[in-house]
Nucleic acid binder design. Structure first.
Length: 477
RNA sequence: GUAGGUAUAGCUCAGUUGGUUAGAGCACCAGAUUGUGGUUCUGGGGGUCGCCGGUUCGAACCCGGUUACUUACCCCA
């Protein structure tokens, strides 16, 4: 059998892991710097915890887990299915024909599957908060770095298994949380050296717009359509709005907003006029202004921050501020971070008045962007962290080297001893070369007798015979 | 779910209007060099040309089907 892995999943080798760890470490360090504490939740959730939280499209992308046991035993198949099955297993097809009901995937899904792989980290977090509400201290700040799964068609920058790095604070409706998250993003992206444009918006603005257009129940259609502005252009957006049944009068009203441009302040001023009669819209503007007014207070300096009222974000649960970050250089500029405020995500699980806000770093896409822009520092661009390899000339020499290795490791120096006996010395050097180990320590009978090693610098090709103390000094530098 | 592209050695790919024994680079193994890698030279192993069927004297090549991968749409990190 030819080995393979499921579409949209990947293996990560040592070289890739060095770089992935670098991103994880940077992001985690910054989470902790802002007071977030780590949690983890199970890979699988009960299906009903996840369904209905991500919109119709999102729900379709949830990976469901088959129940254990013979969950089909109570079902009758239709004549067509029996016929197809009969062709395959003519001999004992009757075994599958008891009498209870016809199998229909939408009706009987629960009897086939009652668990699913997590689709994001936010909903499991909300579930966790509700289940542990009495043990938690609010406002509760948590971070979580785990893979999520989506049954998408994979393409460039889109995987079926990928990691999210989430930081959320729940139990506080202060906009200071949004401000601090902006500060966190700025700091993390600065350390990763990625040029980033952070777009933000507010769901209340979008609600206000829908209200003014007298199309509140079509808010999703409207936001999804204008979200595509930079992709399909103004004509495309107008066409999509028409297709969704938005009236021409409403589309006409909307036009100045589709054309909205200029500085953040200009946009806010236009919005103020437009949303003058909408209470929720005015609240949204107030929130946006607070954030804009304090960007300098928190010293945002690396990322650009731009108000973009076409930013919608598909997830159903957002109610206030929404964030999205994109790489601001190169040709490959996918969304590498998303987030926002959700006022009532825990409500579905029975806990009211628990507003939260959070962001999610898309680490796999960050990796892809950094790879394209060649942003990884030299220190992580290697396949191993081993500093020195001891050669193996034979049993006595190897045992001697094991002792030396133990002393180097005690000094914090990453050390390997070539394990297999009887390998040519050239082979052992080749091993060091391929792993990019910078030093090889050759220890034969001569060196043993003098209690020295012949240390070769693999990059320069030079070598010198030195004692243990000098060895430590050279390798520690 | 919709539309396109691709499938030949472990990897990346050539392969002429259909014609003998299907090639290259990289990788791998051995030797030149029995205490020295990365460079060089010499030799070697490695193929169900995705799969099934059709056309033909003859198919990697043409035709039909099928599967996998991939790009885009939808949606999203």
């Amino acid at each position: 059998m030819k080995p393979s892995i499921p579409r949209g999943t990947r293996d990560f080798g040592p070289a890739e892991m060095q770089k992935r760890q670098y991103i994880f470490d940077t992001v985690k360090r910054n989470f902790q710097l802002f007071g977030y504490a780590p949690i983890e939740t199970p890979t699988m959730e009960n299906l009903e915890v996840l369904t209905g939280k991500y919109g119709d499209e999102g729900d379709k992308l949830i990976f469901k887990i088959l129940n254990s046991g013979d969950y089909l035993k109570d079902f009758v198949f239709s004549g067509k299915e029996v016929e197809a099955f009969d062709k395959l297993e003519r001999s004992n097809s009757n075994a599958f024909l008891p009498s209870n009901g016809i199998l229909e995937s939408d009706k009987h899904i629960r009897q086939i599957s009652e668990k699913a792989l997590r689709y994001d980290l936010t909903v499991p977090f909300a579930r966790y908060v509700v289940m542990n509400q009495n043990a938690l201290t609010f406002p509760f700040k948590r971070y979580q770095v785990q893979p999520v799964w989506r049954a998408d068609r994979p393409q460039k920058g889109r995987y079926r298994e990928f990691y999210q790095c989430d930081a959320d604070v729940i139990g506080s409706d202060s906009l200071v949380n949004e401000l601090e998250l902006l500060s966190l993003m700025d700091k993390a992206f600065r350390e990763l050296n990625i040029p980033v444009l952070i777009k933000f918006n507010n769901r209340k603005i979008l609600s206000g717009i829908a209200e003014i257009l007298n199309a509140s129940e079509q808010i999703i259609d409207i936001t999804v359509a204008i979200d595509k502005l930079d992709k399909i252009g103004k004509e495309g957006v107008v066409k999509e709005l028409r297709d969704k049944g938005i009236s021409d009068a409403a589309i006409e009203l909307l036009e100045p907003l589709i054309d909205l441009s200029g500085s953040n302040e200009d946009k806010v001023n236009t919005l103020k006029t437009f949303l003058d009669t909408s209470e929720v819209g005015k609240k949204g503007i107030e929130e946006i202004e607070f954030l804009l007014n304090h960007l300098s207070t928190i010293n945002i300096g690396h990322v650009s921050v731009e108000l973009d009222i076409t930013l919608a974000r598909g997830l159903n649960y957002y109610t206030g501020t929404i964030f999205e970050a994109k790489a601001n250089a190169g040709t490959f500029t996918p969304s590498i971070l998303g987030g926002g405020r959700y006022d009532d995500l825990t409500g579905i699980f029975g806990l009211k008045n628990m507003s939260g806000v959070g962001i999610s770093f898309g680490i796999d896409r960050i990796y892809d962007v950094m790879e394209e822009l060649k942003l990884f520092p030299e220190s992580v661009n290697k396949v191993t962290t081993t500093k020195v390899l001891f050669t193996n000339f034979g049993e006595a020499e190897q045992l001697h080297c094991l002792g030396l290795a133990a002393r180097l490791r005690a000094a914090g120096i990453n050390t390997e001893v070539y394990p297999d006996a009887g390998k040519k010395i050239a082979k052992q050097f080749e091993y060091a070369d391929k792993k990019q180990i910078p030093f090889v320590a050759v220890v034969g009978t001569n060196e043993m007798a003098k209690n020295t090693v012949m240390l070769k610098n693999m990059q320069s090709g030079t070598q010198m015979e030195i004692g243990l103390d000098d060895l430590k000094t050279v390798l520690a530098s």
